[in-house]
């Protein structure tokens, strides 16, 4: 009975936590706004609140926080999926070269003078291309999962080299800083238009992985064990890879390489809840969303000028990770 109650409390907490964090984060910044006013504004009764605050919340903070919620949730669950897929606790969205491929796509688009949606599309296309290349190179003789990781690393470094090349030929006055800052990761330049393009693939990916959550427990098992469980191995792996890649590419295209999230959040969750994907997947989605909203809020409000979010995810993430690790609880 007690076990059941804990479960219910956990589910409620996981649903409420991101919403609560988002409401509080909406009020934090150069102009402080009370949670009460925030609620009035987002429920459409903002007439009672002064114009300036309404503007700030609706056109700047809200889209940005929506982005943080989705990217945080998405990258965390994608990390979760890759870790299961490779039976490797250190696997991240970068393992397949997706992040590098998507970054290259965006860098090229910036170089060619595009902005906003074309940058996102190009990033998305090259992200997908990177996975396809990785899978093609890793297939064949070796067949095992290590081959795919190795080829992922190779494709990743290939795209990294191409990014360096793009930077090298970029105009040092305007393009180079733009590409460099974008690569560092920022959620600043978000509007509803780019959310309309970037969020749906993340949402679809999250839903796929959420549905598959229990079956994902099969992923780290041996080939024979998966096959003898009567599961279509190829289909399960393909669905997982496609969903996780779609999330990663869409995230990278919207806000650059936000590192650490896909590694940090699933492990934090695992330390508390154990290795069962049935629990880890929903918790990663929720905690990942909370995590990125918190970090992004710090990034935009700690100093007068904005701090690139990747620096913060590493600065906040690494010590916290070490703390959790030292406090005990196994990795898997």
């Amino acid at each position: 009975m007690a076990k059941k109650q804990i479960k219910v409390i956990r589910i409620v907490a996981l649903i409420l936590l991101p919403i609560l964090t988002a409401v509080i984060a909406l009020g934090i910044g150069r102009i402080a706004i009370s949670p009460k006013d925030i609620l009035l504004i987002i429920t459409g009764r903002g007439g009672l609140v002064e114009n300036m605050a309404r503007m700030t919340v609706m056109s700047f903070r809200l889209p940005r926080i929506i982005l943080a919620l989705f990217v945080g949730a998405g990258l965390s669950v994608a990390g979760c999926a890759f870790q299961g897929l490779f039976a490797n606790p250190l696997a991240t969205p970068d393992t397949l070269g997706v992040a590098s491929g998507a970054s290259f796509g965006a860098a090229v688009a910036i170089l060619l003078g595009f902005n906003a949606i074309p940058v996102q599309l190009s990033s998305f296309v090259f992200g997908i291309l990177a996975v396809i290349l990785t899978v093609l190179c890793g297939r064949g003789k070796g067949k095992g999962m290590t081959m795919i990781i190795l080829s992922g690393i190779m494709i990743g470094s290939l795209f990294s080299a191409l990014i360096s090349f793009v930077k090298y030929v970029a105009d040092a006055e305007s393009q180079l800083p733009a590409i460099t800052y974008w690569l560092m990761g920022s959620l600043a330049s978000t509007d509803y238009k780019s959310l309309m393009v970037g969020v749906p693939p993340i949402l679809v990916g999250i839903i796929i992985l959420f549905i598959l959550r229990w079956r994902m427990n099969l992923l780290p098992l041996t080939e024979d064990e998966i096959k003898s469980s009567g599961t279509n191995v190829l289909l399960l792996r393909t669905l997982t890879v496609v969903a996780a890649t779609m999330i990663t590419a869409a995230s990278v295209s919207m806000c650059g390489q936000v590192g650490w999230v896909g590694l940090l959040v699933p492990h934090m969750v695992r330390m508390r809840l154990g290795g069962n994907f049935k629990d880890v997947v929903p918790a990663s989605i929720s905690i990942g969303a909370v995590f990125l909203v918190v970090v992004d809020t710090i990034a935009r409000s700690l100093t007068a000028s904005e701090i690139p979010i990747s620096i913060l995810t590493a600065l906040v993430g690494a010590p916290f990770f070490i703390y959790l690790m030292r406090r005990g609880g196994s990795m898997r």
Partner: peptide, 26 residues
């Protein structure tokens, strides 16, 4: 040869994978 990342209960439940539909959890 097995990856032992789960509790005993979770491990035993994996044996039902052939029976449960893709969308169901035990």
């Amino acid at each position: 040869n097995t990856t032992a990342g789960y509790t005993v209960l979770d491990t035993v439940l994996i044996g039902l994978a052939a029976e449960l539909s893709v969308f169901r959890s035990p």
